[in-house]
């Protein structure tokens, strides 16, 4: 990177949410038309984790019904997986958009009333809850709410209402983290 003394160019404002949603909807629609499936995120991390556990402790991974589902029968490399490649693309796409809008910055997003350590502990905790919830619900906000929402899937709509319900229900207790 160039001289750090220069002030970075100001970040550009975010896109109008309706147009961003329209773009996202077209990406989702193209996945339906081309692949016959929607988007996802959490499944890629499960596949990566199952593969890692399998490499470190093969017997443990093969003995666990949850990991086995993401490992397959050994005839193909489990990492040659649609969601794994899609999530790699998500990182690239996010980076590109961030770069174009001058939003690449090594920083922490938090409200002014919480310490850095406090925010990071909560980020870790929230991530852990997310991992558990996503597996129990067979998908996350991408795989269930977005994809299943557009397909009028019963479980996805029940899930989506509960995500908003859970977050709104706890928002008051966490206001110091954000406001």
């Amino acid at each position: 990177m160039s001289a750090s003394t220069e002030t970075p160019p100001p970040a550009k404002p975010h896109m109008n949410p309706y147009w961003a949603g329209f773009g996202l909807g077209l990406v989702l629609l193209s996945a339906f038309v081309v692949m016959g499936r929607g988007l996802g995120a959490s499944g890629a991390f499960t596949t990566a984790l199952a593969t890692t556990v399998h490499a470190v402790a093969p017997a443990h991974a093969e003995g666990n019904a949850f990991y086995r589902e993401y490992l397959g029968d050994g005839t193909t490399n489990p990492l040659k997986d649609w969601l794994v490649f899609e999530v790699l693309g998500v990182f690239v796409g996010g980076f590109l958009s961030g770069a174009l809008a001058n939003r690449l910055r090594l920083t922490i997003e938090k409200g002014p009333r919480i310490s850095t350590l406090g925010r990071l502990v909560l980020a870790f905790l929230g991530g852990a809850l997310m991992g558990i919830g996503a597996k129990l619900a067979l998908g996350c906000t991408s795989g269930q709410a977005l994809t299943g929402g557009a397909l009028l899937n019963v479980g996805s709509w029940a899930f989506m209402l509960c995500v908003f319900g859970g977050a709104y229900g706890l928002a008051w207790f966490l206001r110091r983290e954000w406001l």
Binding site: L122, A123, G126, L129, G133, F159, A167, L174, E177, W178
Partner: peptide, 9 residues
Amino acid sequence: LGAGFIVGG
């Protein structure tokens, strides 16, 4: 997941 969303952001 909703709890994780508001806790983790």
